[in-house]
Amino acid sequence: MLYLDNAATTPVRREVLEAMTPHLTRTFGNPSSHHTVGEASAAALDDARSRVARVLGVRTNDVVFTSGGTEADNLAVKGIAIAAASTRGARHVVTLPIEHEAILESVAYLHRVHGFDATLVPVDVHGRVDPAAIEAAIRDDTALVSIGYANNEVGTVQDVASIAAICRSRGVPLHVDAVQATGWLPLAGTGAAAIAVAGHKIGAPKGTGALAVAGRIPLEPLMHGGGQERGRRSGTQDVAGAVGLATALELAERERDEDVAAVAPLRDAFIGQVLDRVPRARLTGDPVHRLPATASFTFAGTSGEAVLLELERRGVVSSSGSACAAGADDPSHVLLAMGIDRETAQTSVRFTFPHGLRQSLDAVADAVAASVEAVTG
């Protein structure tokens, strides 16, 4: 079985598991406890925070450990926006219609519960936004701009540096969801005021993540209680998870250039074979500005779910888009926002390749051609 749904999740790396084990057994204390057992855990947590900060290019105290990317995005969007409303009366947010549900649903919550306005800036047919359109959407009362570094369904990469420069010039914080970008794109130096990452996309366990938010940015906590994480996220910290996240981030950053150099050509060859051999195939996402490990297609006249079943029967596991929307009958909101009609959008199939991929994907292209033929024959 060849697993090509790495944008959904990845197996835990051996190095990560080994780094975590002592903090699940010997160094098991509560990091808030004021005795030697707790202090040992607190020291491990502080070390993990420093390591995450180095990879993200932020100050150590900027890092807030979370239960994953969804919580990190929620904390950024709701926490920054609600604080901005309280401190300066700002009740407007800017985002894109192709974003992960963690962002879009948080924006919908702000509108429904707190009376915020929202501007969803259109993207082009490849899912990329013009930074000038972001600038045009910013108002005097804009509390936050929130975008994904790279789209989780089609892999399109946004011009984050330009958008960050615009936001800085307008005095508006930029939140970047970097969950899919981690390990493939540089995380330090984006210019974002807040950046979210998740561990299970890069070989750490599910339920691990972090939000780095600049100390100058007011942040309303979503969880209240013991005041952990400098009052920004209450709850006893998962020390082992934090250590695992730090280890996975360091490994992904250390191996990033080598992985990109190896995987991108394999992805391009695979895309070329599918487009050449499957007349119904259409590549989705930006053909140039895309993640090195993502290839997504529509196969007009088929059913994406039927193609997926045929692929799995041939030993290839892939997906039809975001795992968070798995089982939904509606077509992808990402593809609809890119101008793809509903019927075609329901034929989408996404292949996301692992870090460390070095072998040819010719056999996968064979399986795609055979699977599409099987469901249309």
Rank of each mutant, 00 (worst) to 15 (best):
Q228C: 09
D286E: 08
L291W: 06
L2P: 00
L251Q: 12
E101C: 00
L185G: 05
T344V: 15
A300K: 09
A132M: 10
M223A: 14
P279V: 13
D286L: 03
V243W: 01
V213L: 02
K78Q: 13
A306I: 06
G327H: 02
T70F: 00
G241Y: 08
L75P: 05
S371T: 07
D329H: 08
F116A: 13
G285N: 10
A281Y: 07
S322Q: 03
V113I: 15
L266N: 10
S50K: 13
G272A: 14
L308I: 14
A133N: 11
E99V: 03
V157G: 04
H34Y: 05
L120V: 07
E135W: 02
A264P: 00
A246Y: 06
S332A: 09
L245V: 12
T352L: 03
A178I: 13
G68P: 06
A214V: 12
F28M: 07
A90G: 07
M223W: 10
L266C: 10
G304T: 04
V278I: 15
T25Y: 04
V288A: 13
T70N: 12
S296G: 14
L75C: 03
G189T: 12
I82K: 08
L222R: 08
V197E: 02
R14C: 08
V113S: 09
A102F: 01
Y149N: 04
L275M: 13
S332V: 08
T87Q: 06
A165T: 12
S319L: 03
D5F: 01
G327E: 03
P292I: 09
L222M: 13
A345P: 05
M338E: 15
H35V: 09
L275G: 09
L187R: 05
A181Y: 05
P218F: 08
V77S: 02
P331M: 10
I82G: 00
L110C: 09
A132H: 11
E153H: 06
L308G: 08
M223P: 05
A48R: 04
G68S: 04
H114P: 08
R216H: 14
D140A: 12
A365Y: 07
G225R: 03
A261E: 12
G231H: 01
D5L: 02
A204V: 11
P22T: 09
E71M: 11
S234F: 08
Q346H: 13
T352G: 09
T344H: 00
L187H: 05
T25D: 12
A48W: 01
P354S: 07
A40D: 13
G209E: 09
R216S: 15
A137P: 12
D62A: 14
P173A: 06
T9Q: 06
M223Q: 12
A40F: 00
A7Y: 10
